[in-house]
Design a protein around this nucleic acid. Structure first.
Length: 427
RNA sequence: GCAGAGGUAGCUAAGCUCGGUCCACGGCGCCGGACUUGAAAUCCGGUGGGCACCCGCCCUCGAGGGUUCGAAUCCCUCCCUCUGCGCCA
């Protein structure tokens, strides 16, 4: 969330940001509640001060009559205080509630635009593959191999869940290991963390309250299944004050990710938009001076996986209207897939400035005696496993219906150089 | 799941029985100052959040309610930690 003082002193900037992001939020309601709160809290504090003074007199007053008089004065003060105090509490909650729905301020170098058409391609790496035969999609490839089973996934759980078998199941594991080994050499500490998180954590990274309907929830224990390991990695240091020397904190974690994707079932995208997928996530916690540079590093660190897999890709700077709620600046990494000649997002790397840090109270001190300041948080996929698998299947497909294994992945696949259709019993 | 013991500031740790100079004792660490050639030791001051920044004011004892003129202290609910028992891959 944004700093209250910042909103109060820069309402025009916030209003323009809301317009640029195409987001509705009750900014006027906030400003009104804030102004009323501030005027009323002064009055409340004055009354409380007088109350505190009288309360200190009472135990020292020996005369019973005078004591009774003081107690009566306290009762009177309490009567006058009650309504005012309730009102100030109400206004405070109101302004904070509205504030939770105001998105982060985009950085100045983020292009203004309504949707993906205003995004800017920053750089492109590698050559598009154009096989001399009609390229297939990953669902056709995987199903023909008998290694991707959309139907049984739907039977066991529901539509939007798939099952992998044999080499593709192993490839899931292989990709996780390859990616994490790469990120380890880049300086990210490997973390294993829960796949469920509580509501405080979800509030801290911005999933709540606005995106409650996008998540799976366990009502019996008031827990949510994480939509990304960003939640667990960023919230690890929630309500902590770090030393400047602790930073940058760089974490990576593999986790399953759960998304309800309510109202968006097409059933035709195969593994691309599903309810559960695996992802290796990168998170950085840095001081404000280094955050812009850290976003470049983090994006490049994620790209390294694509370079190692020799997958043609591009780096895209998202415009104001296409960024997520909490982000101040976002790069997407998109891989080119020959099937339908399209670009597919496999990573989204964002700088949240102090937006998440303020929500989740992650602070740092420059020196032991100085006041604490909010850190800057960043995260990015490094990468989404399922979609990377899709990109490999489609980019490395052969005319025979299988696909080659990228060289970097072979050591993690028992040395396999290509994946051929299963023969024999494949129930 | 059951029983017991706990949760106090960056860390440590008094206070709770019996509500009122608690405006939260003390120590460690850290910051500033004095002393010193410099340092150590010693002494003085400071060290949770917000508003105002010259005084000053409000809030804060795991969270939220309640009782009371007044709650760290009494009552209720919840969360977390530790110990023992139970269950368990």
């Amino acid at each position: 969330m944004l700093d209250i003082k910042f909103i109060r002193e820069n309402p025009d900037l916030v209003r323009r940001s809301l317009e640029n992001r195409c987001v509705q939020a009750d900014l006027d309601g906030f400003l009104e509640a804030d102004a009323s709160f501030r005027s009323i809290v002064e009055e409340v504090n004055g009354l409380k001060h007088r109350k505190n003074l009288v309360a200190r007199e009472i135990p020292n007053e020996k005369d019973a009559n005078k004591k009774a008089e003081l107690v009566a004065r306290m009762k009177d003060l309490n009567l006058r205080l009650k309504d005012l105090d309730d009102e100030s509490t109400r206004l405070d909650s109101l302004r904070n509630e509205i504030r939770l729905y105001i998105p982060n301020m985009p950085l100045n170098d983020v292009p203004v635009g309504e949707d993906a058409s205003s995004n800017q391609v920053v750089s492109t790496w590698g050559e598009k593959r154009t096989p001399p035969f009609h390229p297939k999609g990953h669902v056709e490839i995987g199903s023909a191999l008998k290694m991707l089973d959309m139907e049984r996934g739907a039977k066991v759980t529901g539509s939007g869940f798939y099952i992998l078998r044999d080499k593709l199941a192993r490839m899931e594991r292989a990709l996780i290991n390859l990616m994490m080994d790469i990120h380890t050499t880049q300086g990210y500490t490997e973390i294993w963390a829960p796949a469920l998180a509580n509501s405080s954590s979800m509030l801290g990274t911005g999933q709540l309250p606005k995106f409650e309907d996008d998540m799976y929830r366990i009502p019996s224990d008031d827990l949510y299944m994480i939509p990304t390991a960003e939640v667990t990695l960023t919230n690890m240091n929630r309500e902590e004050i770090l030393d400047l020397d602790d930073m940058p904190l760089r974490y990576q974690a593999f986790s399953p990710c759960f998304r309800r994707e309510a109202g968006r079932h097409t059933g035709e995208e195969g593994m691309i938009r599903v309810h559960q997928f695996s992802k290796v996530e990168l998170v950085s916690i840095v001081d404000p001076e280094n955050s812009a540079l850290e976003l470049e590093k983090l994006t490049d660190d994620a790209s390294e996986v694509l370079r190692r897999l020799d997958l043609p890709h591009r780096k895209v700077l998202l415009c104001t209207g296409d960024m997520t709620f909490s982000s101040a600046k976002t790069y997407d990494l998109e891989v080119h897939c020959p099937y339908n000649d399209r670009w597919m997002e496999v990573s989204s790397c964002s700088l949240f400035t102090d937006f998440q840090a303020r929500r989740s109270a992650i602070k740092f001190r420059r020196q032991p005696h100085l006041p604490s300041e909010f850190v800057h948080t960043l995260n990015g996929s490094g990468l989404a496993i399922g979609r990377t698998m899709v990109a490999i299947m489609e980019n490395y497909q052969t005319e025979e219906g299988g696909f080659a294994v990228p060289e970097a992945l072979r050591p993690y696949m028992g040395g396999a150089e290509r994946i051929e259709p299963l023969t024999g019993r494949t129930i």
